[in-house]
């Protein structure tokens, strides 16, 4: 009959209207500033640098190898390795800048990092009126503790810890017979199942 489809439609909307008062599946709104959805463990939004221990800058796992700078698709990472007084590299970043006004949270820096030094953050409430200072994160802003990493991604952190412990055990085993050489650990990105030896840092692009 003409109009039966219209009436069916009206019935559906009426049903939804009534149900919105008592059925949580029909009132799906999360009232954002007061309520927050629980972010899934895998959620990623901008990278941060992991540090061990208490010292934010000294404890950074980052060795300024510049792999992430080279691999970053939008080229939003900028690293200058630190040098001591004699001009030798100290395997620490002097400058580690990350421009989150460009970053697309693709997680490729995390995947390529052989040292598990850069991980993905979950903080997204960063709207700001200031483009230049607020959206360029320096290593001081980026450094977050290992414990923070554990709270964000417990599963991934556990894997990373296991890999790091294994690497440490191996370096120690190696260091005992041989002279203590600065052999970098052989960890792996958690996503890649195969452990790969770290490649030498490619020349700056």
């Amino acid at each position: 009959m003409l109009g039966s489809g219209l009436i069916q439609g009206l019935a559906v909307t009426a049903k939804n209207f009534v149900k919105s008062f008592h059925d949580p599946a029909r009132l799906v709104t999360v009232e954002y500033p007061e309520q927050k959805t629980k972010l899934p463990e895998n959620y990623r939004n901008f990278p941060f640098l992991v540090y061990d221990g208490d010292q934010a800058i000294d404890g950074l796992r980052c060795v300024a190898c510049k792999i992430c700078e080279a691999e970053c698709p939008p080229q939003c990472i900028y690293i200058i390795p630190d040098r001591d007084e004699k001009g030798r590299p100290t395997k620490k970043p002097k400058v580690f800048d990350l421009d989150i006004s460009v970053c697309m949270s693709c997680q490729i820096c995390v995947e390529v990092c052989p040292f598990d030094a850069i991980k993905m953050d979950q903080h997204f409430e960063i709207a700001t009126a200031e483009r230049f200072n607020a959206l360029l994160l320096h290593r001081e802003d980026l450094a977050k503790s290992d414990a923070y990493f554990h709270t964000l991604h417990p599963t991934e952190a556990a894997q990373v810890d296991a890999v790091l412990a294994e690497a440490k055990r191996r370096t120690e085993a190696k260091a005992r017979p041989a002279a203590p050489a600065a052999v970098p650990a052989t960890p792996t990105a958690p996503a890649a199942p195969a452990a790969k030896p770290p490649e030498p840092p490619p020349p700056a692009v």
């Binding site: 895998n42 959620y43 990623r44 996503a191």
Partner: peptide, 20 residues
């Protein structure tokens, strides 16, 4: 999101499999 970490920009497949 709970699989790949992002709602829209999943960036999930890799050459030779999936990321996670």
């Amino acid at each position: 999101e709970s699989l790949s970490g992002s709602r829209m920009m999943c960036n999930y497949q890799r050459f030779g499999g999936c990321r996670i």
